[in-house]
Structure formats: structure tokens, C-alpha cells
Design a protein around this nucleic acid. Structure first.
Length: 617
DNA sequence: AGCACGCCGACT
DNA sequence: GTCGGCGTGCTC
């Protein structure tokens, strides 16, 4: 008689033992999906172990097998196990978050057609971080490595930040490699299912995709490439809040595959690993340095200037003028903050907010509508203020309008264009371009003069990663610039500016790592956020404060984490649910998670939902 | 997660 | 007396 240990995509760890009916004994193995009775429901579960015996007295039998063959390989099961320990979810939840929607509720059929040769011995897992200065140099190395790995009969996962980048990547790799390549994307369920099955059935050598493609069920994985590894897109915004880079490390270790991280300005996490020689590091310096970087001290310029509240420093204005005279192209980069597109009443000062969430509604130019970014609540833009009935409602972001009108005033004959989408960007359509964050994705285009306006709003945010994010923006602007890069700032001596001016990123990382170390922040420790959610504000608050005091009360020497703060979530309310959160830091995530889970078991939490975000961004 | 069980308040 | 609110605990 055989018993199967089964897990479910529920918040219960399990595993639960079930009797394997005799007629199914040959069809059920580790990694199989089965239908089983669970209380009064029938659930799809994952077999994680087959056993000869069981402790359970009132055992129920497995009802049926879902697929022909095991859905999950041993490696994927091992990965799910690691994943669940790190990201504080059940094994079943870990398994399911690695499966696309198209597979979750359908039968699959495994075939044994093998295009990929089994090759167990060669090469061992190591990690390489490549930093370049032009977004392209690292591509040569990617291709060389892919070629090498393919020649060993192994397969490749190539992760990109977004669909656009992945599409471009697919096109590029199709030109260079003749082997089967699949672009695993959600969207068309049937297509996704077909592609996923191809991968699972050993018919694919290269998988391209965004963060979820890290779970692509490739066999004999030899290489994982993560391009623009510093991107926030690699972090899953829903539970479990995994980071594809972290999962890549786990997976590479299990599969003995190599990882290559590529970036213009790597994350501090990766840079720290390079610094301590835990991973290899390659810096590709450009052959010649032609960009002239100028840091303009706003405070000084303001003192010298006649106009008090100027947007553009005089030297920048003359540089723009000169560039235009030479028929050059100008890019004005304005930090996102100054572009806030909320709606407010100029009469009574009311800012229109979402009724379900504690955030301002964002104005969308195209639809002329106000929308909440958290719950999608949407209303047509009102013509009069709902509070005072005055028709003084303003919609466009203040910064944006000012920049454009000021530019037009200073440069009356110049053609000025705003860039909201980079889809079919055309440099020929204007002389001066004004843009925010979106422009950073642009490739293959150079501007003669690039100017960063109001970049300080990015740097002064209450976020310990503010400097890192600002440096990332500056590195990208450097890349977009053919001749001149002007940066207006009130903090001209900050290392993110001086390092950019000297075109020496090492200066930035050295200083920033020093600061992080002093503060005991990432990458010198890990942060964990425990989020408590409730319909009732008081409930979330009380539970959070109680949990915080319990966590704090534990003996300092024994607890593997340090509680830092308890505070309302940001935002405090989403979809009429109130959030409170506890911030912890720790040295070893798995140990901290284990201890936190123990603590959570002890306390009663009715009407509260608790989620955990490991390594929050 | 979801569902039952059980213990208190309001009501045909 | 019962219907139903929610807090508690269990699921092989």
C-alpha cells in the first residue's frame, strides 16, 4: 500500500497524507497533480512525496490524477521548497506561484520527445555581474555565453524587465540562434499553455520572458540571464513577493546553472556581492568618453540670477540655445514627482481622492478621467469642485505645464514635444523633448544635450534607496546623451552627481555602500515587512501594535531579527481595507521567517489577514 | 483559504 | 424559544 503526501495552494503548510488507490499506483509519483477530498471540498493538490506508511488514522483516498505524467520535476520541487522557506509561504503556494494560469486548471500531457541532450557533468554554477556604460556591450557577452551553453546541450532562461524589452530580445536572439526559442508571456492562455508544454516537453532551448519566466520548466538548465537586473519589475508586487534575481540564485544553485546579471547601474545588492567576491564582476568601460557632464548648483545660480524662481539655470538656457542653433536635439528630463497629475480645486484646495483608498486620484489625459492606481476606481473628470462647486478644478501636473511654457517662452521658435510613450518615438518630430521616467527605456537614440531638471525630488524622497534610484536615472541619461549632460541640483556634492560627472560609477558605489553599512541597511541586512490588513482600522492597528510588542519582547540574543517600527501602511487604506505594518531587519532570512511564523502561530488574529514581504522595495 | 462549530444577541 | 452574527480551529 502506498501513501502520497500532498500540498495545496493554501495558507496551510501540510503535507496531507492520502491513500494511493491500487489502480493509480503506476500513475502517481512525486510531482504529480491529484484531485483529493479536503474537508467537504475537492481540491487539486501536488504530490511531494510517496511513502510506504502513514501516521494518519482516518485516511482518504486520492480521487484521480490530473495529468499524464508528473507536472513538476524534482528540481522544480526543490526550488519551490527553498522558495517557500525564504518568502514565507506554504510549499503549495510556492509551487502554484511558479505555474502559469493556463496550466493551473487544465490537464497536461507529457511527452518524451527530447531535443535537448542530457548532459550532467560539465560546468558548474557561478554568478557574473556585468556592468557596461552603453546598454549594448554586455550583449556580446550574453550571446557568447548562450552559444557556449547551447553547445553543451543545455538550455537558457533570459529575463527582461518588461514585454517591450522581451520582444526586442526575442527578435535579437532569433537572428543569432537557430534553436527553438519561446517567449513565455501571459496573455493568450492557449498560446501560453502550448508554449509552456513545449518547454516542459524538452522541445525548447531558450526561454525569454519577464520575471515569471524564471519558473520556466526547462530541463538541463545551463544559464540564466537577467538583463537590467536592478529593475524593480523583477519584484513580484503580489504575495508571494518574490524577486526574480533571488529566485534565479536559488534555481541556479539547484540546477548547477550559471547566472549573468547585466546592468548600466547595478543594484547595491549585486554590487556588494561583487565587492565581497561572492560573484564575479566585469566592468566594461567605454573606449572613449565624449559626454561632457555639468553639475549646475541651483543655489548659486539663484543667487546670481535676476529672476528668483527660475526653472532653468542661465548657463543651461544658453547651452540649449546653442544646441538648437547647431540643429541639435535636446532632452529635458523632469523627475516624476514634479509631474504629479492629481486634480485639485484652486478655490478651496480640495484634492480629489479615491473613496476606497487613501490616495489621490490620478488624472489620465487620454480618457479625461480620474483613476485610482490601487483599486481602479474611475470617474469622469468633474468640471466643478464637489466640495465648493467652483469651476476651478485643475488637472494637469503643475511641473509639466510650467516646464513647457517656460521653454516656449525662452525658445519661441523651437518645436517642443512631450514624450509619454516611447512606442514609435521619432527624433525628427521636434527640437526639444520633455519627458519623465518613460524616456529611460529608450535605446538607440541620442540627444545632443540632455538636462535633468528637479532631480532632487528623486534624491530627497524618504526612501533609503533614493540615491541608488537617482544614480540609475543619471546613468541612463548619460547613455542618452551624445555630447552634453546638464544636471541642475541644490546638492552638487552628492556622490550620485560627482560619480556621474567623473563617469566613474565606482565612486558612487563605494560611498553608497559605506553609508548603507553605517546605517545597517540593505545590502548589509535584509528587511522584512509584516503587513496586517483588516476591514476595521482599530483592529489592524491593535493587532499590529500587539504583534510588535511580542516581537520586541523576545530575548534580544535569541531572536534572529530586529523589530524596527510599527506604522500605518502606505497607503493606509486600499479597497476599504486598512493596513498596518511592522518593519524588521535580519541577517538570515530563513531563520527570521521561521521565528516570525512561530510567533504568528501563538497570537490569535481574527478578522486580520497577515502577509509578509521579504526584501521589500 | 474555506468551512463548521459554538457561543451570544435580536426577533418571527 | 430560534436565526444569524463572528470568533476559533481544523483540514490527511
Amino acid at each position: 500500500v502506498l501513501f502520497a503526501k500532498v500540498v495545496f495552494a493554501l495558507a496551510v503548510e501540510g503535507p496531507f497524507d492520502y491513500l494511493v488507490p491500487e489502480d493509480l499506483e503506476k500513475k502517481i509519483e512525486k510531482g504529480s497533480r491529484v484531485l483529493v477530498p479536503f474537508q467537504q471540498r475537492k481540491l487539486i493538490g501536488y504530490v511531494v512525496e510517496i511513502s510506504q506508511k502513514t501516521q494518519i488514522k482516518k485516511i482518504k483516498p486520492i480521487l484521480s490524477v490530473i495529468d499524464e505524467g508528473p507536472l513538476l520535476s524534482k528540481n522544480m520541487l526543490d526550488l519551490s521548497r527553498e522558495f517557500s522557506k525564504y518568502y514565507a509561504c506554504s510549499l503549495g503556494q510556492a509551487i502554484e506561484s511558479g505555474l502559469p494560469e493556463s496550466i493551473r486548471d487544465t490537464r497536461i500531457k507529457l511527452t518524451v520527445r527530447r531535443l535537448i541532450k542530457e548532459n550532467k557533468n560539465s560546468s558548474c554554477g557561478d554568478i557574473l555581474l556585468i556592468q557596461d556604460r552603453d546598454k549594448f556591450s554586455r550583449w556580446q557577452i550574453y550571446k557568447k555565453e548562450i552559444n557556449h551553453v547551447l553547445s553543451q546541450g543545455k538550455s537558457v532562461i533570459f529575463l527582461n524587465t518588461d514585454l517591450e524589452a522581451a520582444k526586442a530580445c526575442l527578435e535579437d536572439l532569433r537572428k543569432s540562434f537557430a534553436c527553438p526559442i519561446v517567449f513565455l508571456q501571459r496573455g493568450n492562455l492557449r498560446q501560453n499553455r502550448e508554449d509552456w508544454l513545449k518547454v516542459r516537453n524538452h522541445q525548447v532551448n531558450i526561454v525569454i520572458g519577464v520575471r515569471s519566466a524564471i519558473f520556466a520548466p526547462l530541463h538541463n538548465l545551463g544559464l540564466i540571464i537577467i538583463d537590467e537586473e536592478e529593475s524593480e519589475n523583477y519584484k513580484n508586487d503580489q504575495t508571494p513577493h518574490y524577486h526574480a534575481r533571488q529566485v534565479a540564485f536559488m534555481r541556479a544553485k539547484i540546477e548547477k546553472a550559471k547566472v549573468i546579471l547585466g546592468s548600466l547601474s547595478p543594484s547595491l545588492e549585486s554590487m556588494r556581492l561583487a565587492q565581497t567576491k561572492k560573484i564575479d564582476y566585469l566592468f566594461l568601460q567605454q573606449a572613449k568618453q565624449t559626454v561632457n557632464v555639468q553639475i549646475l548648483d541651483i543655489r548659486r545660480e539663484r543667487r546670481l540670477s535676476k529672476t528668483r524662481n527660475f526653472i532653468f539655470c542661465e548657463s543651461l538656457v544658453s547651452a540649449i540655445q546653442q544646441t538648437l542653433n547647431e540643429k541639435g536635439k535636446v532632452l529635458i528630463f523632469a523627475s516624476r514627482r514634479g509631474f504629479a497629475t492629481f486634480a485639485y480645486c484652486r478655490n478651496c484646495g480640495l484634492i480629489l481622492q479615491c473613496p476606497r483608498c487613501s490616495v489621490n486620484l490620478a488624472y489620465h489625459f487620454k480618457e479625461k478621467a480620474l483613476r485610482c492606481r490601487y483599486c481602479n476606481y474611475s470617474i469622469a473628470s468633474p468640471a466643478v469642485c464637489p466640495q465648493c462647486n467652483a469651476s476651478y478644478i485643475r488637472y494637469t501636473g503643475i511641473g509639466e505645464e510650467k516646464i513647457e511654457s517656460e521653454l516656449q517662452r525662452l525658445m519661441p521658435v523651437a518645436k517642443i514635444n512631450r514624450i509619454d510613450k516611447i512606442g514609435n518615438f521619432d527624433v525628427a518630430c521636434a527640437d526639444i523633448f520633455v519627458s519623465t521616467q518613460t524616456i529611460l527605456k529608450l535605446k538607440n537614440v541620442k540627444f545632443d544635450l540632455v538636462a535633468a531638471i528637479g532631480i532632487d525630488t528623486a534624491l530627497e524622497r524618504v526612501d533609503f534607496r533614493a540615491a541608488e534610484k537617482t544614480f540609475f536615472i543619471l546613468s541612463n541619461l548619460f547613455c542618452l546623451s551624445a555630447k552634453n549632460l546638464f544636471i541642475q541640483t541644490a546638492l552638487p556634492t552628492h556622490h550620485c552627481f560627482t560619480a556621474t560627472a567623473k563617469n566613474d560609477p565606482r565612486l558612487f558605489y563605494e560611498k553608497e555602500l559605506f553609508i548603507r553599512k553605517q546605517a545597517g541597511f540593505v545590502p548589509f541586512s535584509h528587511f522584512i515587512i509584516i503587513k496586517l490588513r483588516s476591514r476595521k482600522e482599530e483592529k489592524a492597528k491593535d493587532a499590529a501594535k500587539e504583534l510588535f510588542s511580542i516581537l520586541t519582547a523576545a530575548e534580544k540574543e535569541k531572536r534572529p531579527f530586529k523589530p524596527l517600527s510599527v506604522s500605518p501602511g502606505q497607503p493606509a487604506k486600499i479597497r476599504d481595507n486598512f493596513y498596518w505594518q511592522i518593519l524588521l531587519k535580519c541577517r538570515f532570512v530563513e531563520k527570521a521567517i521561521l521565528s516570525i511564523k512561530e510567533t504568528l502561530k501563538e497570537i490569535k488574529h481574527s478578522g486580520i489577514i497577515i502577509t509578509i514581504d521579504v526584501d521589500p522595495l
